[in-house]
Design a protein around this nucleic acid. Sequence first.
DNA 1: CCAGCTATGTGCACTATTTCACAATATCGT
DNA 2: ACGATATTGTGAAATAGTGCACATAGCTGG
Lengths: 211, 211
Amino acid sequence: MNKESKIPAPTIERLAHYSRPLESLLDNETPVISSEKLARLCGVNPAQVRKDLAYFGEFGVRGVGYDVRDLLVEIKKILATDRDWTLCIVGMGNLGSAIAENENFKKRGYKFVAAFDSDPTKIGRTLPCGLIIEPTSRIRELVKSLKIEIGVITTRPHEAQRFADLLMDSGVKAILNFAPIQIRTLDCCKIENVDFAVKLEHLAYHIAKIL
Amino acid sequence: MNKESKIPAPTIERLAHYSRPLESLLDNETPVISSEKLARLCGVNPAQVRKDLAYFGEFGVRGVGYDVRDLLVEIKKILATDRDWTLCIVGMGNLGSAIAENENFKKRGYKFVAAFDSDPTKIGRTLPCGLIIEPTSRIRELVKSLKIEIGVITTRPHEAQRFADLLMDSGVKAILNFAPIQIRTLDCCKIENVDFAVKLEHLAYHIAKIL
DNA sequence: CCAGCTATGTGCACTATTTCACAATATCGT
DNA sequence: ACGATATTGTGAAATAGTGCACATAGCTGG
């Protein structure tokens, strides 16, 4: 593809990290920040911050730093969080419910417009956020009619691939998967897998090494 | 440190990923698996699988493959999931509750033995798993008396650093942080940050690029 | 016991990512 | 107007991680 397809994945993830302290700085009315300070807030190297930003343009002022408000706007533009996204979630267990309610998601424009589960006892229940749990048999219909762009999977692992296939086939463009299984997707659909237990295992490895 | 400190972090994370399909294969009574098949199940390159495992020993049999049961045992030994760990969780909102109940964690030997919140209306409530929510003022005391090794943070971001400091100071050896903020730790304490919204932002970036 | 087959373990080249180091450039005080 | 100062943007060096390709070694059948 074009120039932008060469941008390293770690850079994209760091841009999202940079936006977190920038939001606080904006609330604090701090007008300007240097790469060094921002780097320290995010636990990275200052040159890294500058290089990450330089992939997308020259946002700073030499000898001064970056305007907090402008930089945040630019990062949001890059990450496409300057607009709303419509999502659905499949699997309304504890984790699914927690994610559907999550303030952090709402604040960034990720709107859940449908929630699905295959357990008949859950179907029809209303979540605190106002969503009604729909049967998974309606996934295809609702993804299309509500123009859902991103699907979130919080089912048990053995069902995850099946629902991923169904979501893709119904037209979602990306999937965020919390089931501890590696999901295969077509090229037209981007996937991110999140497995908390992997993080704990990483921690356990390091602790055990020291002991 | 020793030889093991040179092992790449991605290798450790992949070892955890390898263990997922191995568990299913064990249930399926598949006795042996090749690096090629395991790699396909995990979406990585076969040479990568072999190299990752080779850091820790020679677990395979040339011309045959890896014994599923033995390999799983070895990986669990490496990741120190062949034992139980005691954890606590701070911040009993939706996400905190979901994590405390999570089957995936329990199954791998991560036992939550205390849950904390600073909201007086939540304190004293009993969770489905049997834990009683304690006030955060008891963190120091309970971390010590229950010998809690790992702390999980699911508070709002502005409180996260404070609780992390308190947990560290009380003696936890690692922290898993779900608050969208970069937490600073001392060398004696290992940290992993998990921020779902970052993953969504990564997905949004890719989708928006295509459109 | 040996030939043929298969899949591991690994040196090496390649690719990706990070960090350094400094030239370029904006601001400020005189 | 200009020197002193601060901080960016960036080529080049260093570091880290991946994947190829093949020698090595175990198993099977004759």
